[in-house]
Amino acid sequence: MMLILGITTSTSQVGCAIGGHEGVLGSVNSARGRRHAETLTPAIEFLCRQTRVELSEISAIAVDLGPGMFTGLRVGVAAGKALAYARRLPMIGVTSLDLVAFPLRHSPRRIVCALDAGRGELYHAAYRRSPGGVERLTEPVVASPEELAADLSARADEMLLVGDGALRYQSLFDSLRRVEMADVGEAYPLAGSLVQLAHARALREDWINPAELTPLYLRKPDAEINWTTRDGVSS
């Protein structure tokens, strides 16, 4: 029996779940309280106890790759890599936006996921339902909420807008005619979705080499941006 442990820390929420072909055996999600690093390790310990699964029975580690808040994201990715290394397990990485879209897979609308990127920006990507899940239609990008609102207002199809970023800038999207807002319960990537998506990939042995697994940042570090700009000016 294949059991997968999934970790998601790319937003303000921290989550972990264990699941396999029977679906999700258990999941822990913490929406508030202590910070990611404080919360995650005890949460994994608790989850194992509650599901009566030993870490030695886990056969793959899935992590939320982001995009998201850099510091939190790295807590989960570092923990996932450490766990995979310690128990010599294969890894699977899933984009945070894919995780937010997955629970909405029964909607016939175009699903637009928008997560809070801080600094007045959003990470977003669009999806449509496909057999057994969702299909991503656009590459994840970072953009201003105004840009996304302009994109959406130019479209003729019915849309479902979801994510903590969408909620944060809700006033910009409320006036759009073909856009319906999903509620706060669907606004964050869930570890349960992660193990479900990862299980399908594990069956195809669609692993990622832990050494090559790196967070999806979508933004360069500030210093690098400043450096490039400075180069541009001086040359």
Binding site: T41, L55, A78, A79, A82, Y85
Partner: peptide
């Protein structure tokens, strides 16, 4: 610091 602390705690748990 968070990268090292997070990885170390997880290694301790795993072993």
């Amino acid at each position: 610091l968070l990268v090292g602390v997070s990885a170390a705690k997880t290694l301790a748990l795993a072993w």
